[in-house]
């Protein structure tokens, strides 16, 4: 029988929505028992949230001042010290999970399965390679612990309403001080979150300036959508890095994705493969984005976008 430990991502006070999706992945392993571990300086509210997730049988907490901010070299040895009873340790394939999980794997002397998108059985998984141009079915050694990150766009959140028990655990490991958090510069806005929003309006290089991106924001506001961008738009400084969609940005699965002035490079498309409906507005009818768009409009965005915003009342 499988016993899965899920490492809970959080921001110090709130559980990250990715956790409910990692639990969903874990729950797709036959008859798995699922526990969640919260490492924080103040575990209270975060653990409460985790305990509400369906399928979770127990929430374990490690409360230490060193866990105030997520530092891989600090978190990994604590996870390693308490995971010997588990067959699997899973984390999200977010920057949080990508930072810490390979450290856990290396300390345990195993390789990691990155970006799990489907569970075939307890030791066989599907994962994307080459920016999603191929899907590999991989098998981990039967006799060793499985360390994995979960591609969160591949899973729907488990329901809430559970009330799992919460227990604190002590891990007696010495923690390094060689890595120090200085600051977080976040473009935090009131707009819907890119990773969880049902609708996303994204702009590309064609916008031409930070000011012109206002067109994207206006349309997004009208639709109640989050804002995304191509790498070219981020590189040019029109928008902050956290809104980049694609292989090296965010992998998202909204119901509606509107790509405006984005050519549709493979590295961009890999971020929207699971979107419900893709709409493309581009002035070049040959743009590769039209090959994957459900609805395409060949038009100059500087005319079409204001007109669309106006028409959506």
């Amino acid at each position: 029988m499988s016993k899965v430990l899920v490492v809970a991502e959080h921001d110090g006070s709130v559980l990250n929505p990715s956790v409910a999706k990692v639990v969903a992945c874990a729950a797709s392993i036959d008859s798995a028992e699922i526990e969640v571990v919260v490492l924080a300086s103040n575990v209270g509210a975060i653990a409460q949230e985790a305990a509400q997730l369906e399928h979770v049988s127990r929430v374990l907490t490690i409360e230490r001042p060193e866990n105030d901010y997520a530092i891989a070299a600090v978190l990994a040895p604590q996870i390693v010290a308490m995971c010997s009873d588990y067959t699997h340790v899973f984390g999200p394939s977010s920057t949080y999970g990508k930072d810490v999980m390979p450290q856990v794997a290396a300390l345990l002397g195993v390789n990691q399965v990155s970006d799990i998108m489907a569970v075939i059985d307890s030791h066989t998984f599907k994962r994307p390679v080459y920016a999603g141009s191929g899907l590999a079915t991989v098998e981990t050694p039967a006799d060793s612990i499985v360390i994995g990150t979960v591609r969160i766009a591949s899973y729907s959140s488990v329901a809430e309403g559970n009330s799992a028990s919460i227990e604190s655990v002590d891990v007696a490991v010495e923690l390094p001080t060689h890595t120090r958090f200085i600051e977080l510069k976040s473009g935090a806005s009131d707009r819907p979150d890119l990773q969880t929003s049902a609708k996303v309006v994204a702009g590309g290089r064609a916008l031409g300036s930070e000011d012109n991106f206002e067109l994207i924001y206006k349309l997004a506001d009208k639709l109640g959508a989050a804002v995304g961008a191509s790498r070219a738009a981020v590189d040019a400084g029109y928008v902050p890095n956290e809104v980049q969609v694609g292989q090296t940005g965010k992998i998202i699965a909204p119901d509606l994705y509107i790509a405006i002035g984005i050519s549709g490079a493979i590295q961009h498309l890999t971020g929207i493969k699971d979107a419900g409906t893709i709409v493309a507005i581009n002035k070049d009818e040959e743009a590769p984005i039209f090959e994957v768009a459900d609805i395409g409009l060949v038009a100059d965005l500087f005319n079409a976008v204001p007109e669309l915003t106006e028409a959506l009342d």
């Binding site: 195993v110 899907l135 079915t137 050694p141 039209f290 090959e291 609805i295 409009l297």
Partner: peptide, 29 residues
């Protein structure tokens, strides 16, 4: 030597179908 993760098979991703083209913003709406 680390226990390697075996790659069993590869498959192409599900292709998205090319959808419809609309002529103008009214068509898009």
């Amino acid at each position: 030597s680390a226990p390697a993760i075996k790659e069993l098979t590869f498959e192409p991703p599900a292709e998205r179908e090319r959808g419809v083209m609309v002529n103008d913003v009214a068509g898009l709406v």
